[in-house]
Design a protein around this nucleic acid. Structure first.
Lengths: 108, 108
DNA sequence: TCGCTATATTCGCGAATCCTAATATATTAT
DNA sequence: ATAATATATTAGGATTCGCGAATATAGCGA
């Protein structure tokens, strides 16, 4: 019952727990990205982008490097992508099941 | 850019984002459990247990069945366990890396 | 240096989360 | 029906989160 380990794990999961950050990580799965690209791609304001990126940084989910005036972001751990994929599958299947159940009710 | 899919995924991840719920799911990985067992095992009050279980239920992360006066809980999707394991590994490795970095600084 | 662009941080407020205590509901036994 | 146990829900207040706006900070070129 290493309570403390779960606290660490929870801190990481909290950092994942926002649709914007999930989208950011999904984009990073395809490769390195400049901070400046998230705003236009996701329709977010600059400060909002920076705040979400800060959350990901503090959770060590991403790495950064400077390239002149820009800051480039990458996934810190390739297993993160794996986790996101699996979560996506579970969510999709849940949705499919719910839809099927609805159809069942509708068609009696 | 299926924004909506990420919203669903985020809802699920939010349900995972608490150390108590992570512990509950870890317990369920070992098999079915009665609601009444979480309190004593995790040192939580009854209402708190029930609230956390409600979060897991609403996110379809667990299934329930009644057995008389008790309610038995199981993991809804075995892939959830897989996700939790991977997240645990990532968190542990992060911690190890941080510790190593600290040692480096200390021994300079 | 100054100005310009890219990032990061801070502030303030509304919304969401979490906890305890209290109350409600459900199931079984007497 | 009543009592007893197991669960669930509600109410409340404290803490945290998320956002926009404003304000730093950093690097680069004129």
């Amino acid at each position: 019952m290493e309570e403390e380990g779960y606290r660490l794990q929870a801190r990481m999961v909290k950092a994942l727990a926002h649709s914007t950050r999930l989208q950011m990580l999904a984009l990073l799965q395809k490769g390195e990205l400049c901070a400046c690209e998230f705003g236009p791609l996701l329709g977010l304001r600059q400060s909002n982008v920076s705040q979400h990126l800060a959350v990901l940084r503090k959770a060590n989910l991403v790495n950064t490097r400077r390239d002149g005036v820009r800051v480039m972001y990458t996934l810190a751990d390739e297993r993160t992508g794996e986790v996101l994929d699996t979560l996506g599958h579970i969510a999709r299947d849940q949705f499919a099941e719910a839809a099927a159940a609805l159809r069942e009710v509708a068609t009696g």
